[in-house]
Write a protein that binds this DNA or RNA. Structure first.
Lengths: 243, 243
DNA sequence: CGTGAGCTTGACTTGTTTCAACCAACGTGG
DNA sequence: CCACGTTGGTTGAAACAAGTCAAGCTCACG
């Protein structure tokens, strides 16, 4: 994970904010707002090792976690243990904007890698929102984006084949990492375990392994020590059935 | 559809509002708010026949449709025509609260049966929201509920069997109709075509038919002319794998 | 050095889809 | 009022995608 420093730097400089595409939010709409936030709210920074839970479904939180470094994932669980990852959380991502209005978190969040995150106090954020009402438009963008992501996931789970789903997951991460300038010539950090890919796309570990092997064999992607290179982007797009 | 009158009455009296469970919203948190809304906003009422689109994905709307009578459904479509119904919209349901902040609707909405709905002007609603800031808490409840529904759907599509999914769909509709007092001793109107159930749960028409036949054969449900009776609620719960 | 987590591979099973034929109900136009 | 096409539902056989089971491998780590 050579570009850890790059990740920290991006976030701390607010670069991941200015670079973020329309609809993506990083709790900082531009450098100034981000600096204001950090100054006004003095969020507490926390670090948690890989695979450890950041918070559990049903828990009450007075603060909203925002991912700063590396990856986390939010997941729901059925009573019998079946799990679905709702979203892979990248640096700059707010864990759940519902936490601005409700203290109970509906899903659990866990670290994919070692993760650094900041807790923004809800009350502070709310008063800030009242003082700077223009932030509402940013907020609504995050809201809408969260909902769109959820709808898109449902569509993929309900109507796409395993190949399509996995290709789409890769393309989605690639797009989001590109926006954060975390992709150098088609290569990106890819710390996800097969187990997590399976949970994210409603598949089994075994099948994920088979599909990814097939992608590699076909020369579409390449993976080595927790990083992935897209060798044939049009090919991957074709498999994913997009655009 | 014998209780059409009941449905109209419920909505027009605001009964579906007072009866709605925590987290459910009907654009009217209690009778007074609803009357205020109707008086202040003079929404235009529209009627549309079954199977006809109310609006299409990508369209720009200056008004937010709210279902008044009968059922509608929101759906997303893949470029090759595969479809997923995101949500079955019942009387009192707002089509998409994202429309409060964004004019482009991300999915299409179509009438399941003949449907009556009202269009609430976005600008009017926004000024109302500014004048009555306490409405924000109602709004956030709808928001959060919409997101939870979407996450729940993803979980079901990703991790539940066909039997479970269909049982859960039935239970979900039963719960929501109960809250609107549209269920008399376990019997409810059920205008959904197999085709729509399939699109809602990511299955094929043929398989839906087989699963429903099996439910009937096992004496769990009973269906006749567009209405469904749950004969064995605990049994259905067991199949659905809930609680 | 042993242990456990993660990945791969092959054989087999199963749930769901696909294909196809058929039936019932309904509305429309002759 | 009948003939007809259309839409929606049912059923069975065959095909297929993904899951399950099982074994073996690598690698990191205490």
């Amino acid at each position: 994970m050579e570009n850890a420093e790059a990740q920290v730097q991006k976030f701390d400089e607010g670069a991941s904010c200015t670079a973020c595409p329309a609809g993506e939010f990083n709790l900082c709409a531009g450098r100034t707002a981000k600096d204001q936030l950090a100054a006004l709210l003095r969020p507490s920074v926390q670090t948690i090792p890989a695979r450890r839970p950041i918070c559990r479904a049903g828990e009450a939180l007075d603060a909203i976690p925002v991912i700063c470094k590396w990856w986390a994932a939010s997941a729901m669980t059925l009573p019998d243990g079946r799990r679905l990852i709702l979203s892979i959380l990248l640096p700059g991502d707010i864990v759940s904007s519902a936490l601005l209005f409700e203290s109970e978190i509906r899903f659990s969040v866990e670290a994919v890698t070692d993760v650094e995150y900041r807790m923004f106090d809800r009350a502070d954020l709310q008063t800030l929102l009242v003082k700077r009402p223009h932030l509402f438009s940013d907020l609504s963008k995050i809201w809408i984006d969260e909902k769109n992501q959820a709808d898109q996931l449902a569509l993929e789970l309900g109507r796409c084949s395993a190949d399509e789903r996995i290709a789409r997951l890769v393309l989605n991460l690639w797009k989001r990492l590109s926006a954060r300038e975390l992709v150098q010539n088609q290569a990106m950090e890819f710390p996800l375990r097969h187990h997590q890919i399976a949970d994210a796309m409603g598949l089994t570990v075994v099948h994920v392994s088979k599909v990814l092997s097939e992608f590699k064999r076909a020369g579409v992607i390449q993976m080595d020590n927790r990083s992935m290179t897209i060798l044939d982007l049009p090919g991957l797009r074709r498999i994913a059935n997009v655009r």
